[in-house]
């Protein structure tokens, strides 16, 4: 999805309005921008810097500080594999291996057609269901190696 400068402006304007154009709401603004665009493009950060009249260094500093923000394009679907203690003892390692092999990517990477992004998390608080894989916020519990492929098929 390539956006023109004007389209980007139109997307960011309401986000800023929702946050009262308040520089103190920078984290919230960046979160909303990432939800809207999937990641934080360089031009979006520049736009926020201009509209809020705060230094670009501040926007960039915050955007790089939090791991939840991505400055690189991410896949349409976010896969999180839980590597917490409970999931670990129930074989999360093998589940992760399977997902990696299935998609041909490592945690922190996107696959070639930007369908999936893969990352690991350390406990999502649903240990009784371990090992857990979360795709776009939907929990898939009690994962098994041969359940990985059918699960990923549901996401285009």
């Amino acid at each position: 999805m390539k956006l023109t400068a004007q389209q980007l402006k139109n997307k960011i304007k309401p986000i800023l309005g929702k946050n009262h154009n308040d520089p103190a709401m920078l984290v919230s603004i960046l979160q909303d921008t990432q939800t809207e665009l999937g990641y934080l493009p360089r031009k979006a950060l520049a736009e926020i810097h201009k509209e809020l009249n705060i230094p670009l260094t501040q926007v960039y500093g915050v955007a790089t500080f939090f791991k939840a923000f991505s400055l690189e394009p991410r896949g349409r679907h976010q896969i999180q594999v839980c590597m917490g203690t409970a999931c670990h003892v129930r074989g999360a390692e093998k589940i992760l291996d399977t997902v990696e092999r299935e998609l041909g990517i490592m945690p922190g990477e996107n696959d070639k057609d930007l369908r999936f992004s893969l990352e690991t998390v350390n406990c999502v608080g649903a240990c009784a269901l371990g090992p857990i894989v979360i795709v776009d916020g939907d929990y898939a519990g009690e994962m098994k190696i041969d359940k990985v492929k059918p699960l990923l098929k549901n996401y285009k």
Binding site: L56, Y60, T64, F65, F66
Partner: peptide
């Protein structure tokens, strides 16, 4: 009063740089 440089990243990866390591506009 320009804030052209700042810290980027966090923890052990923290370093002093300009935005995107190449934007020296400010």
């Amino acid at each position: 009063g320009q804030s052209a440089i700042s810290f980027v990243n966090r923890g052990v990866a923290r370093e002093m740089a300009i935005p995107f390591y190449n934007d020296s506009d400010a």
